[in-house]
Simulated scan of single mutants.
Amino acid sequence: MTTFTFWQNSVSIHQAPLVRALSDLGVNVRVVTTRGLASGRRELGWGLPDYGGAELHIEPSEREIGVLIERSRNDNAHIFSGIDSYAELNSIRPRLIAAGGGPLVAVSEPWDPRGCARKVRNALAPMIRRRAIRDYDMFLACGDLAMRQLRRMVNDPKLVHDFGYFVNPSRLLSAPQTNEVPIITFAGELSPRKDPLMILRALSTLADVPWKLNFVGDGPLRSVLKVEAQKYGLTDRTRFWGAVEHARVREVIAVSDLLILPSRFDGWGAVLNEALVDGVPVIASSMVGAKTLVRGTLQGGVFEVGRWRDLARLISLELDAVSDQSRKQNLQAWANECITAEVAARYLIRLLATNSTETAVAPWKYRTDSKGMGQP
């Protein structure tokens, strides 16, 4: 029986769907997380995500890790979160290799390339990470930037494959909903890195058309955003939800007409997945890893990071398209074929069952027409 062991730094709601899908497809899955659910998320009422039939080990002791290494050394694959980002996992990897375990696979988001210090660090990354890189037999890159970075670092670029994070439809709506006024949603931390201020600036140029705006989440920019909304005369059209439980976030997104993620940098941005699988188009900045899912106008649009006028233009196009009743169903159909957890699980099984240097096209990168619809 095929067996995969996931070595993760923490419990993750955005990795659990993939694990659950693998288990449902008959793969024996073991998940080892060195940390449990973050305290902040517990305070919001979050519980452990559903890992399905996977064997779950949360915060195991050193002795228990030794037992798990021995039990798992003959597994078909050991899948690590990050290349060398987490000290706890860095200590496990050489012990697993010494025990004869393998092959080893690294799932890696991109490194933030912004700023002089980061540029120097990224330039030195191949040298710094050379030893860790040699430990792995395959790399799963989350987004196009991660693909470019990793392919510059490894000896054989064919060892690097497209990957990401995956979720399933929320199933919160029994029937398509039509809003009287288009609803635009931002979901995430209200922080400079996520740059929610850009949304208000862009929407201030579209005050003559109907829309409502949701900010779902909390963070250091909340008070600033309220001041800016007042300055632009948008207070009555803007709602601040604060931090809410994840299921409620999914519900707000599912009934929206558009989701925007304008981040200055986002390693992935699973909120884009959450919108797309529920048939909600998205707009993302060019520095969001999950922008790779935006294959055409069906999925939404991508603007150059920091350019609020380009964002405003895309929002205007999306507001014009709200009346297209077939778009939601077409988008959901594409998502079901290309980016659900089950689709990703089948893709991962195919990658790990064959020679890792073979070319495999990620499902979301199947050839598409100009609108982003999949082609055979």
Rank of each mutant, 00 (worst) to 15 (best):
R134K: 15
E109K: 04
S356G: 10
W364Q: 01
V343H: 02
A123D: 09
L234H: 10
M138S: 10
I315K: 05
S39P: 01
L221Y: 09
L314D: 03
C116E: 13
I83E: 00
L56A: 03
V29R: 02
E318V: 01
P126A: 10
L96E: 05
P363N: 04
D324T: 10
N9T: 06
L348F: 13
L159E: 04
E318F: 03
R95D: 02
V288W: 09
T235K: 13
L197S: 11
R63L: 07
T235D: 11
L140P: 12
D218E: 13
Q329V: 05
V252G: 02
G66M: 04
G101L: 01
S23Y: 03
L48W: 08
A87Q: 09
A117D: 09
R309C: 00
A321Q: 12
V361F: 03
L25Y: 02
R367T: 00
G53N: 14
P94D: 02
D310L: 09
A341K: 06
P157F: 07
A117E: 08
T292N: 11
G40V: 07
V277F: 08
K158R: 15
V105G: 02
L319R: 05
T185M: 11
G143W: 02
L124G: 02
P49E: 12
N330K: 12
D144L: 04
R121W: 11
D137N: 12
I92C: 05
V282A: 15
E55Y: 07
L261H: 03
A87T: 09
E304H: 08
G115P: 09
P210A: 07
R35M: 03
G242M: 01
T340W: 10
L18K: 00
I283A: 03
D257P: 09
Y347H: 14
F163H: 11
W111E: 13
T357H: 14
V29Y: 02
W334A: 05
K291E: 06
V160R: 02
L234T: 05
N76C: 06
